[in-house]
């Protein structure tokens, strides 16, 4: 597909000012899978900004997707606060020990400094390297764990969900902290050349109720987006899993793009497509070698529906591309999508 005249930055740029492009951007969420194609282990990928950047460049060279992604795990900010995570060579980091064991600790917590705390400097270095290497041709998306998800990493998911019911004030206090931490990280990512993307997997309908989303997730997502909108940045919100029960609330977050997962794309287009650009939503497990899922058909179907979306569409995966996704399947998905045309350019 190297004969395409338009590059990814140009394509995204036009999409974000409501202009027609040659085709929708094709942007599967290639995150830790980049480590696989680069041949590095995930501990290095998470701990070394140079490795992360090189892996993304390599993945982009192989797949030619529209955009580079800096993301390791949702615990990034929680770890910078002080939660303990286990880094693993073959899989993404997991939470070992949340920082806030006692609600009284909350008052003493300091917002982590992006230049020094935890792996935040790694993140910023990766954004900077990617932007320096390819920022004129590729947008660099810096995935930022949203306040609700980080709060769960600070407190432990179950405990935090219990807090929302039994100690809502404490939950809000934690969320204020995580919001401010996310703002600070966003600032540094912007200065390094990255466009923040908010990821809030714990705010999924698969995990929390509509009420909890409305009360504890949405205001903080909106707070973050309002802050970024003041800088005139177009913000993508990604929520994994089921989001049917909160779909009508998505425009209230003011997100410019909504990356959806297990949701009927046509229904999403109908309900919010005139207000929000949609990003999605090929099932990631269809990219596994022995999944038995077809690749070609769902892509065609998603394009047929998505390209009708009034505010625009980005062909993507519903969630992260699996670490050990089948290269050929991913390539098939991408190349199929790249054949789509709004107009001949």
């Amino acid at each position: 597909m190297s004969d395409e005249r338009m590059n990814a930055r140009e394509r995204w740029g036009l999409l974000l000012i409501d202009e027609l492009t040659d085709r929708p951007p094709v942007y599967p969420l290639i995150t830790s899978h980049a480590a696989t194609v680069h041949g590095c282990n995930l501990i290095d990928y998470c701990r070394d900004g140079r490795v992360l950047a090189e892996a993304q460049i390599e993945a982009q060279r192989i797949y030619g997707q529209d955009g580079l992604t800096v993301f390791t795990d949702v615990g990034l900010i929680a770890e910078a606060f002080g939660s303990r995570y286990l880094l693993r060579a073959e899989d993404v980091p997991i939470l070992l020990e949340p920082l806030i064991q006692n609600p009284e600790q909350v008052d003493d917590l300091a917002i982590p400094e992006p230049q020094s705390a935890g792996r935040l400097p790694v993140y910023i270095e990766a954004v900077d390297r990617l932007f320096t290497a390819a920022g004129d041709r590729q947008p660099v998306f810096a995935f930022i764990p949203a306040p609700f998800t980080t709060a769960a990493g600070l407190r432990g998911t179950e405990t935090f969900l219990t807090d929302t019911i039994l100690m809502p004030e404490t939950a809000h206090k934690i969320l204020d902290l995580t919001l401010n931490a996310a703002l600070k990280l966003c600032d540094e990512c912007i200065l390094a050349g990255g466009l923040p993307v908010l990821v809030d997997p714990l705010a999924s309908g698969s995990v929390i109720s509509r009420h909890t989303f409305k009360e504890f997730a949405l205001p903080y997502i909106k707070g973050l987006i309002d802050y970024l909108h003041r800088y005139d940045l177009d913000i993508m919100l990604h929520i994994c899993g089921e989001t049917k029960n909160i779909l009508d609330l998505i425009p209230a977050t003011d997100a410019d793009l909504f990356s959806l997962d297990k949701l009927d794309l046509a229904a999403a287009c109908k309900e919010i497509g005139s207000r929000v650009r949609l990003v999605g939503n090929i099932p990631p497990n269809s990219l596994l070698a022995f999944s038995g899922h077809p690749t070609f058909g769902p892509v065609e179907e998603a394009l047929t529906i998505g390209m009708q979306n009034p505010k625009g569409f980005v062909l993507s995966t519903g969630c992260e591309v699996p670490i050990r996704a089948d290269k050929e399947k991913l390539l098939t998905m991408i190349n199929t999508a790249k054949r789509a045309r709004y107009v001949e350019w």
Partner: peptide, 18 residues
Amino acid sequence: LYLFPPSTHTVYGNRLLR
């Protein structure tokens, strides 16, 4: 609206602004 700082335009590819 257009009163935004250079960092806004950096993100969209104007690397020299840095």
